[in-house]
Write a protein that binds this DNA or RNA. Structure first.
Length: 150
DNA sequence: GCCAACGTTGGC
DNA sequence: GCCAACGTTGGC
Protein backbone atom coordinates (compact mmCIF):
# COMPACT_ATOMS: atom_id res chain seq x y z
CA UNK A 1 0.00 0.00 0.00
CA UNK A 2 1.14 3.48 -0.86
CA UNK A 3 0.61 6.86 0.75
CA UNK A 4 -0.32 10.12 -0.90
CA UNK A 5 -1.07 13.75 -0.29
CA UNK A 6 -3.79 15.51 -2.25
CA UNK A 7 -4.42 19.23 -2.12
CA UNK A 8 -7.76 20.92 -2.23
CA UNK A 9 -8.82 24.48 -1.65
CA UNK A 10 -11.27 24.27 1.26
CA UNK A 11 -13.41 27.04 -0.19
CA UNK A 12 -13.93 24.78 -3.19
CA UNK A 13 -13.92 21.36 -1.52
CA UNK A 14 -12.94 20.79 2.11
CA UNK A 15 -12.52 17.76 4.33
CA UNK A 16 -15.99 18.52 5.68
CA UNK A 17 -17.39 18.37 2.15
CA UNK A 18 -15.77 14.96 1.70
CA UNK A 19 -17.16 13.80 5.04
CA UNK A 20 -20.65 14.78 3.96
CA UNK A 21 -20.40 13.23 0.50
CA UNK A 22 -18.40 10.15 1.66
CA UNK A 23 -16.83 9.71 -1.78
CA UNK A 24 -15.77 12.19 -4.42
CA UNK A 25 -14.39 11.93 -7.94
CA UNK A 26 -11.14 13.93 -7.79
CA UNK A 27 -11.69 15.91 -10.96
CA UNK A 28 -9.88 18.88 -12.37
CA UNK A 29 -6.28 17.74 -12.11
CA UNK A 30 -4.57 19.27 -15.15
CA UNK A 31 -0.94 18.57 -14.43
CA UNK A 32 0.78 15.63 -16.11
CA UNK A 33 2.88 14.57 -13.15
CA UNK A 34 -0.13 14.57 -10.85
CA UNK A 35 -2.16 12.69 -13.44
CA UNK A 36 0.55 10.08 -13.82
CA UNK A 37 0.54 9.39 -10.10
CA UNK A 38 -3.20 8.81 -10.21
CA UNK A 39 -3.12 6.79 -13.40
CA UNK A 40 -0.02 4.70 -12.89
CA UNK A 41 0.66 4.34 -9.18
CA UNK A 42 -2.50 4.70 -7.12
CA UNK A 43 -4.43 1.65 -6.06
CA UNK A 44 -7.72 1.29 -4.23
CA UNK A 45 -6.98 1.17 -0.51
CA UNK A 46 -4.01 3.55 -0.66
CA UNK A 47 -4.17 6.19 2.07
CA UNK A 48 -4.27 9.93 1.46
CA UNK A 49 -3.53 13.02 3.49
CA UNK A 50 -6.25 15.54 2.63
CA UNK A 51 -4.44 18.87 2.46
CA UNK A 52 -6.08 22.28 2.57
CA UNK A 53 -4.28 24.72 0.29
CA UNK A 54 -4.60 28.38 -0.56
CA UNK A 55 -6.39 29.24 2.67
CA UNK A 56 -5.87 30.85 6.05
CA UNK A 57 -4.46 27.70 7.66
CA UNK A 58 -2.77 25.51 5.04
CA UNK A 59 -2.11 21.99 6.25
CA UNK A 60 -3.26 18.40 6.60
CA UNK A 61 -6.89 18.38 7.63
CA UNK A 62 -7.87 14.76 7.33
CA UNK A 63 -7.35 11.29 5.93
CA UNK A 64 -8.94 9.72 2.91
CA UNK A 65 -8.56 6.56 0.90
CA UNK A 66 -8.33 5.79 -2.79
CA UNK A 67 -11.63 4.17 -3.74
CA UNK A 68 -11.26 3.32 -7.43
CA UNK A 69 -8.82 2.67 -10.21
CA UNK A 70 -8.09 5.61 -12.47
CA UNK A 71 -10.66 6.46 -15.13
CA UNK A 72 -11.17 9.38 -17.54
CA UNK A 73 -12.10 12.68 -15.90
CA UNK A 74 -15.54 13.51 -17.34
CA UNK A 75 -15.07 17.25 -16.84
CA UNK A 76 -12.52 17.38 -19.67
CA UNK A 77 -15.37 16.72 -22.13
CA UNK A 78 -17.86 19.11 -20.53
CA UNK A 79 -17.87 22.41 -22.40
CA UNK A 80 -19.57 24.07 -19.45
CA UNK A 81 -16.93 22.96 -16.95
CA UNK A 82 -14.02 25.15 -16.04
CA UNK A 83 -11.91 22.04 -16.48
CA UNK A 84 -13.02 21.57 -20.08
CA UNK A 85 -10.17 20.61 -22.38
CA UNK A 86 -11.18 21.00 -26.03
CA UNK A 87 -8.05 19.24 -27.20
CA UNK A 88 -8.80 16.00 -25.38
CA UNK A 89 -10.56 13.28 -27.38
CA UNK A 90 -13.01 10.74 -26.00
CA UNK A 91 -11.18 7.94 -27.79
CA UNK A 92 -7.99 9.11 -26.17
CA UNK A 93 -8.73 10.93 -22.91
CA UNK A 94 -5.90 13.06 -21.65
CA UNK A 95 -6.96 13.49 -18.02
CA UNK A 96 -7.65 10.77 -15.50
CA UNK A 97 -8.96 10.78 -11.97
CA UNK A 98 -9.65 8.46 -9.05
CA UNK A 99 -12.46 8.34 -6.53
CA UNK A 100 -11.47 9.39 -3.02
CA UNK A 101 -13.29 8.15 0.08
CA UNK A 102 -13.55 9.86 3.45
CA UNK A 103 -11.75 8.15 6.33
CA UNK A 104 -11.51 10.74 9.07
CA UNK A 105 -11.05 14.36 9.89
CA UNK A 106 -8.07 15.10 12.10
CA UNK A 107 -8.79 16.54 15.54
CA UNK A 108 -6.87 19.56 14.37
CA UNK A 109 -5.18 20.65 11.18
CA UNK A 110 -1.48 19.81 11.16
CA UNK A 111 -0.30 23.02 9.59
CA UNK A 112 2.28 23.52 6.91
CA UNK A 113 4.13 25.79 9.28
CA UNK A 114 4.31 23.05 11.88
CA UNK A 115 5.49 20.43 9.38
CA UNK A 116 8.33 22.73 8.40
CA UNK A 117 9.56 22.64 11.97
CA UNK A 118 10.35 18.91 11.98
CA UNK A 119 13.82 18.08 10.68
CA UNK A 120 12.84 14.49 9.84
CA UNK A 121 10.38 15.86 7.30
CA UNK A 122 12.95 17.99 5.49
CA UNK A 123 12.91 15.66 2.48
CA UNK A 124 9.14 15.68 2.18
CA UNK A 125 8.01 16.56 -1.35
CA UNK A 126 5.41 18.91 0.06
CA UNK A 127 8.10 20.99 1.72
CA UNK A 128 10.46 21.22 -1.22
CA UNK A 129 10.96 24.67 -2.52
CA UNK A 130 8.82 25.51 -5.49
CA UNK A 131 6.82 22.30 -5.43
CA UNK A 132 3.28 22.94 -6.59
CA UNK A 133 2.06 19.42 -7.26
CA UNK A 134 -1.51 18.86 -6.14
CA UNK A 135 -1.07 15.09 -5.98
CA UNK A 136 2.15 13.64 -4.60
CA UNK A 137 3.51 10.55 -2.88
CA UNK A 138 4.28 10.47 0.84
CA UNK A 139 6.95 8.12 2.21
CA UNK A 140 5.70 5.51 4.69
CA UNK A 141 8.02 6.84 7.38
CA UNK A 142 6.75 10.37 6.81
CA UNK A 143 3.16 9.17 6.99
CA UNK A 144 3.71 7.41 10.33
CA UNK A 145 5.61 10.32 11.77
CA UNK A 146 2.98 12.88 10.82
CA UNK A 147 0.25 10.76 12.36
CA UNK A 148 1.99 11.02 15.71
CA UNK A 149 1.71 14.82 15.57
CA UNK A 150 -2.07 14.85 15.69
C1' DG B 1 -3.30 41.34 -3.59
C1' DC B 2 1.59 40.24 -4.31
C1' DC B 3 4.91 37.54 -6.24
C1' DA B 4 8.22 33.48 -6.62
C1' DA B 5 8.41 29.32 -8.84
C1' DC B 6 7.17 26.48 -12.16
C1' DG B 7 4.59 24.50 -16.39
C1' DT B 8 2.88 25.30 -21.01
C1' DT B 9 2.57 27.45 -25.43
C1' DG B 10 4.06 28.88 -29.70
C1' DG B 11 7.10 31.65 -32.81
C1' DC B 12 11.35 31.11 -34.81
C1' DG C 1 15.17 22.66 -29.86
C1' DC C 2 15.35 27.27 -27.76
C1' DC C 3 13.29 30.56 -25.07
C1' DA C 4 10.16 34.55 -24.21
C1' DA C 5 5.64 35.26 -22.91
C1' DC C 6 2.02 33.89 -20.46
C1' DG C 7 -0.84 31.29 -17.06
C1' DT C 8 -1.27 28.92 -12.66
C1' DT C 9 -0.29 27.59 -7.95
C1' DG C 10 -0.24 28.65 -3.41
C1' DG C 11 2.13 30.76 0.64
C1' DC C 12 2.26 34.97 2.71
Amino acid sequence: MKYWLMKSEPETFSIDDLKRKRTEAWDGVRNYQARNFMRDSMQPGDKVFFYHSNCAEPGIAGIAEIASDAYPDPSQFDAKSKYFDPTSKREEPRWMLVDVKFVKKLKRTITLDELKGHDVLDEMLLLRKGNRLSVMPVAAAEWRYILTLE
